[in-house]
C-alpha cells in the first residue's frame, strides 16, 4: 500500500497504518517501545492519537504510554519539517573540535542547537555515535559522517538548503 508522504519522506500519520504496526507485534511481551520506535521510523514522529490507541490495544494506562513517549529522546511529538542534523558532543568529539562544529552549524543554519531553522532543518545534540576513532562526528538524517570540519558543515548547509548566512 502506497502511503501519502510529507516533504522529508515520512508517511503521513494514519490510524489505520498505525493499527497495522500494532497488529504486527500482536502477542509479543513488552512491545510498547518497539511499536513506538516503529511509529517514529514510519511517520517521523509519534502522533498524540498514539497514546489512546496503544493504551487501548496493549491494555496499559494512558499515563504509562505517555510516560514512555516522553522519556526517550528519539521519539518526537511533532512531524519533522526538514532534515535532521545530529552533532556529537561526546568527550571524544569535544577533544577534536566538536564545540567549534556546533558554533559553525549554528551560524550557517541560523538556529541554536535544539531548535529547527526556517528551512525546517533541525539541529540536535547527541552524545556519541560510536564513531569516536573518526571524531568529530555528525549524523544527517541517519547517515553517519566522520572527520567533520567546519568546511564540511558549510558544504552540508549548501546541500540541505540551510540558512548559510553568518
Amino acid at each position: 500500500m502506497e502511503s501519502a508522504r510529507n516533504q522529508v519522506g515520512f508517511a503521513l500519520w494514519s490510524s489505520a497504518d498505525a493499527g497495522e504496526i500494532v497488529d504486527a507485534h500482536e502477542g509479543e511481551q513488552g512491545s510498547l517501545l518497539e511499536i513506538l520506535v516503529a511509529f517514529q521510523q514510519r511517520f517521523g514522529y509519534v502522533d498524540d492519537e498514539a497514546v489512546d490507541l496503544l493504551a487501548d490495544r496493549l491494555n496499559l494506562s494512558r499515563a504509562e504510554v505517555y510516560g514512555v513517549v516522553t522519556f526517550y529522546a528519539d521519539l518526537k511529538r511533532e512531524p519533522a519539517s526538514g532534515h535532521t542534523i545530529r552533532i556529537c558532543r561526546g568527550e571524544s568529539c569535544q577533544a577534536v573540535g566538536a564545540t567549534e562544529i556546533v558554533e559553525v552549524a549554528e551560524q550557517v543554519f541560523g538556529g541554536k542547537l535544539g531548535t529547527t531553522d526556517d528551512n525546517g532543518v533541525a539541529l540536535e545534540q547527541v552524545f556519541c555515535l560510536g564513531n569516536c576513532a573518526l571524531s568529530p562526528a555528525v549524523m544527517v538524517d541517519g547517515e553517519l559522517i566522520g572527520r567533520v570540519d567546519a568546511a564540511r558543515i558549510r558544504e552540508l548547509a549548501a546541500r540541505l538548503g540551510g540558512y548559510q548566512g553568518g
Binding site: Q29, G30, S31, L32, L33, V68, Y72, D74, L75
Partner: peptide
C-alpha cells in the same frame, strides 16, 4: 534484537531491562 530509543541510561543493567520490557528506562 531490540532497539533503544536515545537514552544513555538504557545502558545501565536494570534500566536496560526496563527498556527491553518496553517501559521508561
Amino acid at each position: 534484537v531490540k532497539s533503544g530509543a536515545g537514552a544513555y541510561i538504557s545502558g545501565e543493567e536494570m534500566a536496560m531491562l526496563e527498556s527491553v520490557e518496553g517501559r521508561r528506562a
